[in-house]
Nucleic acid binder design. Structure first.
Lengths: 202, 202
DNA sequence: AAAGTAGCGGTACATTGGTACCGTAAGTTA
DNA sequence: TAACTTACGGTACCAATGTACCGCTACTTT
């Protein structure tokens, strides 16, 4: 065989993960503007050259960071929904819990994802990354809300709720997001039955 | 009276508006990271010192830019809702039109507002600015959706829809946002009547 | 063993951008 | 008219940053 296991490559991949974890933390805590080669090097306690070696240009670093953050959130959400596939009625509450925890923990990867979404507005290169994430999230909701179009709408609306909850507001109930998200999803449930009490809010 | 009209002050205010208009355009087109004293000076065709005179630090410039963008959108939305106060049933469609136009025109002030919202996540100084805008928007929807809490939820969800629509996606129907927004608001209408055909989607 | 390559530390250079400073013209107040 | 203030234009300094380059080490292939 022409290629065997290269210990160096494995080490490189591990280093990349280390760098991207640090990068996501930086973006989440200080915004996309703070993402620099040097900041990542300092955050991961490695040399500048190690960062520029794996991500030569700042655009490389940005894109990889956003993909990393997006895939982390996406996979976690996938795990959640898969876990509850047997109990579709619990989906609204579970999504509420999921997003509430995301915000309560000030998960830097969640914030980083929004930085990416926004950057996609004026950086065409990031558009596909955002669309892929949206489609993954929407597909999980599709069985519950009925159509792909409705799933995309709910996905986008959920992002809006999370975005608002991310801005600290001492006057707002910390549990607001949980209720708002579950309520939102419930309102988009497919085939509403007018007599169903779970359709209208209690 | 100790103070009379100072022509210099009036000129300064006019210059400030000129600067902020350029600043909003820059943020909307290139993101918050591109907002620099020099970029604004170039965009407004004035000297660098003129920008640093009115906004000595970059934080001053950022905050003023975000307030400027937020108030522009807020006032426009206020005008829309006020204009239609006599026909509350038309609100969903009008909001759909409003947001659709915002995105279709790639309104830089709209994009700038989102940059602000996101920046408020890690910049406490911008929190109040965002809250003020949200409250203004929510108050306009409150009569329609019934409660302040629901109005805030709809406001946040709308922002999510606009945010998604701002990222260019050739595969998505340009009219998607209009329908999604009006549908969203309709789903949050107060005291839904199950038999009403406008409640369920056609 | 020889050659090649991935990973990475160190250094350096040019650019960008925040900010300070100086001077001046025009308008305002005393 | 004299003093004062606003609103600049011009210039410069310094820190941060993107990026290129050199060289060394360890691992892999031949």
């Amino acid at each position: 065989m022409t290629k065997a296991a290269d210990g160096r490559l494995a080490r490189g991949e591990a280093r990349k993960t280390l760098l991207l974890d640090a990068a996501v933390r930086i973006v989440g805590e200080q915004g996309a503007g703070a993402l620099t080669h040097r900041a990542v090097a300092a955050g991961a306690a490695v040399s500048l050259a190690s960062v520029t070696y794996h991500y030569p240009s700042i655009d490389d670093l940005r894109q990889a960071t956003f993909e990393h953050a997006g895939s982390r959130i996406g996979l976690e959400f996938l795990a959640l929904v898969t876990r509850t596939a047997s109990q579709p009625d619990a989906l609204p509450e579970l999504c509420g819990d999921f997003t509430a925890h995301l915000v309560a923990d000030r998960r830097t990867d969640a914030i980083a994802v929004f930085e990416m979404i926004l950057a996609a507005g004026h950086d065409p290169e990031l558009g596909p990354v955002k669309r892929l994430l949206d489609q993954r999230l929407a597909r999980l909701l599709e069985p519950y809300v009925g159509s792909e179009a409705a799933a995309l709408t709910v996905t986008a609306a959920m992002q809006g709720l999370v975005l608002t909850a991310l801005a600290p507001d001492p006057a707002r109930d910390p549990q607001w997001l949980r209720g708002a998200v579950s309520d939102l999803i419930r309102r988009y449930r497919a085939t509403p039955r007018p007599g169903d009490s779970s359709w209208t809010r209690s």
